[in-house]
């Protein structure tokens, strides 16, 4: 698609070179200025603040036991939430893109729900369900099971807010690919599992990886929903974003920004990963297209 766009664009520029050239410069300048002011500058500020008192203070802030427990908790939460959402997301996208059934549009709307709902509400939902006065509160208390104000609540809230990422990323990819390949595989005698692993999965894996990257970035960075269910117990239920807020509120600005820079670094890595994927994807896209064409000629 992007290839076509560029061809038509270059033909147009050959017709009216001067005006488009000027317009292009202005557009690029505005975009760059906007990016610098709203994205690059704050990012730079995080790293300068983090290193304001030198590398020693930076390392000390990151290796503080409370910071470590926050980092460990965040990694753990992501390690549970992301694989679960990967499985849910693939299953949901597969069902929506490859099958027709009643209530499909309702399912798509439901998947989008976490994007539409404020994260604070997402957190409060779990307090209302699992809190001491919630629906299951008395039962959980009687059996001494802790969900909210403990790690399970944080995991649940994180799964809720990161639920749409994988599915949303996969549905368009899967829909674009259509069902022909799968139907062919099935008619040639492959079972459902083989069809998924050998036909569907190879086609979606880049989209899937991108969805997982985004899902992971949000899982590690989520503040609102986690803040509501965490209970803010230092060293036990504080994730990295919550720990950053605490440090900031304790006049510990260098440490706050040092820990925040870890999250910023994660964002940068995610973006780098995405760029690599986009750089590799056109090649794969065209390869897939060629194969489809070959298959079609063979079939006819």
């Amino acid at each position: 698609m992007s290839y076509n766009f560029q061809t038509s664009y270059s033909t147009a520029s050959r017709k009216r070179p001067r005006r488009l050239y000027l317009g292009r410069i202005i557009l690029i300048a505005v975009t760059l200025a906007f990016l610098a002011a709203f994205l690059l500058l704050p990012l730079l500020a995080v790293f300068t603040q983090a290193l304001a008192k030198g590398v020693g203070a930076y390392l000390a802030a990151i290796s503080d036991p409370l910071a470590w427990s926050a980092i460990k908790l965040t990694l753990w939460v992501a390690a549970i939430a992301v694989p679960l959402n990967l499985v849910f997301g693939v299953a949901a996208a597969w069902a929506i893109a490859k099958f027709d059934f009643r209530g499909k549009s309702t399912l798509i709307t439901l998947i989008d729900l976490p994007f539409a709902v404020s994260p604070v509400i997402a957190g409060l939902i779990y307090i209302l369900i699992f809190g001491a006065h919630g629906w299951f509160g008395p039962f959980l208390q009687a059996h001494d099971i802790r969900i909210v104000f403990a790690v399970p609540g944080i995991v649940l809230a994180t799964i809720f807010v990161t639920f749409p990422f994988v599915a949303r990323e996969l549905i368009p990819v899967m829909q674009a690919q259509g069902k022909d390949d799968e139907e062919t595989a099935l008619s040639l005698g492959a079972n459902g599992w083989q069809t998924f692993w050998r036909v569907t999965f190879p086609n979606i894996r880049w989209g899937l990886l991108y969805g997982v990257l985004l899902c992971n970035a949000r899982a590690m960075g989520e503040f609102g929903a986690v803040s509501v269910v965490s209970g803010h117990i230092r060293g036990l239920t504080n994730t990295v974003p919550l720990h950053v807020e605490i440090l900031y509120n304790e006049y510990n600005y260098t440490a706050a920004f040092a820990v925040a820079s870890l999250l910023a670094l994660l964002a940068l890595l995610t973006l780098a990963g995405k760029s690599i994927l986009e750089w590799r994807e056109p090649e794969l896209y065209h390869a897939a297209r060629r194969q489809q064409a070959i298959q079609r000629t063979r079939r006819s």
Partner: peptide, 20 residues
């Protein structure tokens, strides 16, 4: 001794909701 800090009213609410 583990600590949890926040606005007083909010903290009381959390304890009522099950913060142990």
């Amino acid at each position: 001794v583990n600590q949890s800090h926040g606005g007083s009213g909010k903290q009381a609410r959390s304890v009522i909701d099950g913060l142990p």
